[in-house]
Design a binder for these strands. Structure first.
Lengths: 164, 164
DNA sequence: CGCAACCGATTGTGATTTGCAACCACTTGC
DNA sequence: GCAAGTGGTTGCAAATCACAATCGGTTGCG
């Protein structure tokens, strides 16, 4: 994954995030609000192995997509955060979600967020990116109400409860 | 790559095209108009190995992203084509190109197409997808002039000649 | 007809990456 | 003091990958 093959933008993007796990990790940090190693390790549905997670976090840091800071509440805890380049992956992830939702057998609970993000269009993505900047970069909060993340979460819970 | 891990749309999309080569092949078929095994094998800048190419073509066919037909001019020649689901990957590839162009060290010749597609927005993508449907699915030609593919090609050649 | 070039692959071989489970040194809360 | 939790590391088997050589068949050309 580290051999440069060509200067094509699509190829270069694939060299950075074109593996099985990098985008899963970014997705969990983005939409699942997971910021710690063990949160990323255990709670994700896909079940990444700890050595792979450690390797990917290292690599994503080296590529400048995520940052790492000490958690003041626990000397051993690390807080991982998305950087601006990673936040700008939102439109890409939305397109991935939209395509998967249309063409693959997704479960309704997990597709409702993709649907809302797709229907919301670039303006909604932009609001969501501002929220991520506030949460991960310490940027001033955009002060939309309700925040996009909350709207997504509520829609998800509604579908889940309806299914029960 | 064939173990289903979760029903999340992003994850499912990654399971289909989240490897190093599948999207490169689709990119070459889409923007490079490569339709034969040997065209895909040799002329791409990244240099895929023939066994990997054969494996990926098989897999993409099984997933319904590409089709295969006999070339009437040569009994051993196969013509590969994009299916509708693959054509609908255009917005995803555009976003990949846009992100790579912004954040990675792309060469100017190879980034001009990404730039035009990004700036053209969804209407341009839609025109381009109609052209792909005409070329790959035998759909009626959209009859725009000049076609998007030609505009992209001309812009590329202009940058190349300017660099020379 | 003869033969070189071309066709979509397949085979064989090592190198790399992955998945899995166990384990590690250390910190925290009780 | 001790169990639970922290971010990882290690060892090993299995899968995947890259690279080069090769294959049986087809085509164009003399």
């Amino acid at each position: 994954m580290d051999v440069q093959r060509s200067g094509c933008p699509i190829n270069l993007t694939l060299e950075v995030v074109g593996d099985r796990w990098s985008l899963i990790i970014i997705r969990d940090m983005m939409f699942g609000n997971r910021r710690h190693f063990r949160e990323l390790l255990g709670r994700s549905e896909e079940g990444i192995a700890s050595n792979i997670l450690a390797d990917r976090l290292k690599r994503l840091m080296a590529e400048g997509l995520i940052g790492r800071a000490d958690d003041p509440t626990h000397k051993q805890k690390a807080i991982y955060s998305l950087t601006e380049p990673a936040i700008q992956l939102v439109p890409l992830l939305v397109q991935m979600g939209a395509w998967g939702r249309r063409h693959l057998g997704v479960t309704p609970e997990l597709s409702i967020r993709a649907q809302l993000l797709e229907e919301g269009g670039p303006e909604l993505w932009s609001d969501f990116m501002d929220e991520l900047r506030a949460a991960h970069l310490g940027a001033p909060a955009p002060d939309k109400s309700p925040p996009v993340s909350q709207r997504l979460q509520r829609a998800y819970e509604e579908v889940v409860s309806r299914a029960a």
